[in-house]
Amino acid sequence: ETLRLSHNTGDTTTWQQGADKFAELLAAETGGEYEVRVFPNAQLSGGDQMKQAEMTGRGAIDLVLTSAINVTPLAPEMAAFSLPYLYSDYDAVDRTTAGKAGDKMEEIMAGHGIHILAWGENGFREVTNSKHPITSPEDMQGLKMRVAGPMYIDVMNDLGANPQQMQWTETFPALQQGVVDGQENPIGAVIIPQRVYEVQKYITPWHYSYDPLFLGISKAKWDGLDDETRAQFQKAADEAMAYQIEISREATAEGLEYLKEQGMEVYEPTPEDLAAFKEATQPSFDKWSEEIGADIVKLFTDEANAQ
């Protein structure tokens, strides 16, 4: 049987590599009984990145590899992952996806008809701009920032910036001509593959918000599988996403060096700088915690802050 897997990005990204890995492992695990055909660029949903998950939920698509931010229109609770300065490092991230917070999100997505097989990584979102190095919240004052969603609009307003929602296809020329001064995105997933360094001079890896990927299967499909096959799917998914996280973190680590070679100026914020950013964005954190639900956010903060 051939299953169709839909994901958001192009065919050279770590998303595609993770999806290909899953296809390869699943075919091996099941002795070729299940094959996966990967559709990049949200082709199955006509290019709409937000709709893939919902289509999977009602069984129109078999598998989906998407990021938490892209399913917030369907499951607003998933925004918890990207609360500003929720995470201080990768360990904190891994504790939540492996722990109660991850379980809770899996339960919520099951309610939308998607069984989450495993978590992957889109990465921490970092800020770039063409005006000046960003070392403190004051440096954000008045900068025209392209952002991708409502929470980031609030966060940018907290920092005194001037947020603007814009499609990605518009963003590159807008950055080039200076319609907007800056943008924020993960290094490995966007800033390098989308060549943002061509039109931006300064980057501050301020780790202000995180976005995980997940590999999900339509619940209808999942419920129809026997236990043995389920175990094979699970094994393939776990290994494929572990691999995706590994290559994504490598790409990010090497990414800053690469961006320097491309002429970007990197400002590595000190712990004091980060504390200042965190404090400045607290109002958004509180507002969105309330929106998401205090009990859910507590699951995240408990595990993120556990040592």
Partner: peptide, 19 residues
Amino acid sequence: GFGLDLVGDLLSAGIAKFS
């Protein structure tokens, strides 16, 4: 045998492109 239940979404997604 695939796609008919996506038609509504594809039609609206086909038009709703900012560019």
